[in-house]
Simulated assay, not measured.
Amino acid sequence: MPAESGTARPINNIVAKRRFSQQDRQLLASYAGLVDGLAAMFGRHCEIVLHSLEDPERSVIHIANGSHSGRGPGSPLSEQALRWLPELERQQLNHSPAGFVQSRLGAPVKSSTLAIRNGEGELIGLLCLNLHLSAPLHEFMADFMPQVAEPPEMSPENFSNNVEELVTLTVERTIEAINADPDVANNAKNKQIVTTLYEKGIFDIKDAIAMVSSKLNISKHTVYLYIRQKKRDEDESIA
């Protein structure tokens, strides 16, 4: 998809060493968290590389799972990245089509390159995703499955169409969970429900207190009381 702004520069200038502004460097550095997040999501066999075009001979500024290619910070642009640079610049593309290449050991890799542009639309960096397909299938699957030794707490996500529905779903599921908890005494359940909802940030939403008081069949004053007690406990733990 074409970018909305920016003017293509001469192709021979794309790979020339040039001086970036501090804003350009900060923008590129902000992508480091995205690199780590994508690696955590897609697993150990997805190599993700953040390049700065300020110095193509030392372009890699952040990398995840770099053991696949043997690269690290300070490594140069890859042949694949160099191949796509002219097209990304000439056609003002935001990314290359996903395609298949070979690793340094001849193994198949599915690869895609994303353009990073500054506020003026100038191409200043690349985010490259390389999925190494030669890995054993069970290792791929293991990265997408819960670890048996450390089972995660799989609480249902609330995908709601509006705020009122979000509050209602959250309140109902919290009530259900606490009412089913034998460790919470019956006379303490309402307070625990309000405390849990407070920790979830529900009371930052307009009219949530009225909705909770109605669901629990208690007064709004009682809800406020439980919230004040929770805040006081937090303040005392900090002091």
Rank of each mutant, 00 (worst) to 15 (best):
A8Y: 01
P146N: 04
H51S: 06
V148I: 14
A98Y: 00
T7K: 12
N161R: 06
T174I: 04
L28H: 06
V15L: 08
V109H: 05
F100N: 04
P156M: 06
R83Q: 09
L85V: 10
I205Y: 12
K191H: 05
H138I: 10
S214F: 05
L114T: 12
M145S: 15
G66A: 06
P97V: 12
K215Q: 14
I205G: 00
A239G: 14
I218N: 02
D233Q: 13
F42S: 07
P56G: 07
V35Q: 08
L166N: 04
N118Q: 03
I116G: 08
N94D: 13
P151A: 10
S112D: 00
E57G: 02
M141G: 06
P2A: 12
C46A: 09
A8K: 02
T170P: 00
I11D: 09
T7E: 09
L53E: 05
E139G: 03
H132K: 01
W84M: 11
D143L: 02
S78K: 11
R117S: 15
D55E: 15
N158I: 10
P76I: 09
V60P: 08
A149F: 04
D36L: 11
P152F: 12
L197W: 03
K206R: 11
K189R: 15
F159V: 03
M211Q: 12
D24E: 15
P108E: 12
K231M: 06
R117D: 15
V109T: 09
